[in-house]
């Protein structure tokens, strides 16, 4: 009886301690992270202009978004950007990881270099790359030296602006994928390769039948993280194209920023932000279900 009582007293004191320990973070978390989600949901149902005006408009913002050609274009651009950058940056990441997995002295230096863009701010990357891609920038000069007399105008042309952003994005993220995939490669049990060798598999066969299946959870992880981050692409757009020329590189996050902090249509912008959120959730869900089909644990 006495023992039981002391256990419950102990439990009670733990709860008190827990509350004290949680409190500093929890207060801020509820105020700055949880509350804003609900607040944003409410704002998205109003015509709030950032100041006094705030009338309830129901789902009108959501409905109007789908007849707003700029929103549709930003949605399309985000989708194209994702479809182009995610598979390519993972494919390059796999190649890089396979190379880095070889036992060569000094191989770690390459890891440091490949990962470098990942720690560099998007603004810095965007500023430098927009000069690299300038009319007489180094890339076009190399292209001209290779015999292309009329190289693209990259970020200043409607046709190539999104491609330019995609190139930079792939350049930046492939090292990230490579590092993650390399860790996955190094986690594959060497016994599996020996078994494949005993069964007479050549290098290609053991790659297809051992490496790829064993690597699928890692590739899946990269796929999810890359898709989520490409749906949120923003900094690189601000630094390189500001959504332009015209609407050529207007993406969802840029649309939200523009509608809120430029046009002061906070209700409308919040509705767009929620659509962005829903899309991210949708793709995450698809990937989690798809995972069961093709990921081999």
């Amino acid at each position: 009886m006495a023992a039981k009582k002391s256990v419950s007293a102990y439990r009670k004191s733990q709860r008190k301690t827990a509350i004290l320990f949680l409190l500093p973070n929890l207060v801020g978390f509820l105020l700055f992270v949880v509350y804003p989600v609900f607040r944003a949901a409410i704002i998205s149902l109003t015509n709030w202009n950032g100041f006094k005006q705030m009338d309830f408009v129901g789902v009108r913002n959501y409905v109007s978004l789908f007849s707003d050609s700029t929103f549709i274009i930003s949605l399309q651009n985000t989708l194209i950007y994702t479809i182009v950058t995610v598979p390519l940056s993972i494919a390059f990441g796999i190649v890089m990881a396979l190379l880095m997995n070889l036992k060569i002295p000094g191989i770690k230096v390459f890891r440091t270099i490949y990962f470098l863009p990942q720690i560099t701010s998007m603004i810095a990357i965007g500023l430098v790359w927009s000069l690299v891609l300038a009319k007489y920038g180094p890339l076009n000069q190399i292209l001209m030296a290779l015999g292309n007399s009329d190289p693209p105008k990259w970020i200043s042309s409607t046709k190539y602006a999104l491609t330019s952003v995609e190139i930079v994005s792939i350049w930046r993220s492939m090292g990230y994928n490579a590092i993650i995939i390399l860790a996955g490669l190094q986690g594959i049990d060497a016994v599996l390769y020996e078994a494949a060798k005993l069964d007479g598999a050549n290098a290609w066969q053991s790659f297809v039948h051992v490496t790829i299946p064993m690597l699928s959870p890692t590739i899946f992880f990269c796929l999810v993280t890359q898709m989520i981050s490409s749906f949120k692409v923003f900094d690189i757009i601000i630094a390189m194209t500001q959504g332009g020329p015209g609407r050529a590189t207007n993406v969802l996050a840029y649309f939200v920023y523009n509608k809120s902090f430029v046009d002061s249509r906070f209700g409308y912008a919040s509705a767009a932000a929620f659509i962005m959120f829903a899309i991210i959730m949708f793709f995450t869900a698809i990937q989690f279900y798809g995972q069961k089909k093709w990921v081999n644990y």
Partner: peptide, 28 residues
């Protein structure tokens, strides 16, 4: 520490990590 609702509260923390900044930036 052990307290009631610990895992539920942690799940709430985890859940918010998926929310894009664009949703919370205006109320923030």
């Amino acid at each position: 520490l052990h307290f009631r609702g610990r895992d539920a509260l942690f799940l709430l923390y985890l859940g918010t990590m998926m929310i894009p900044y664009q949703v919370t930036m205006i109320p923030q």
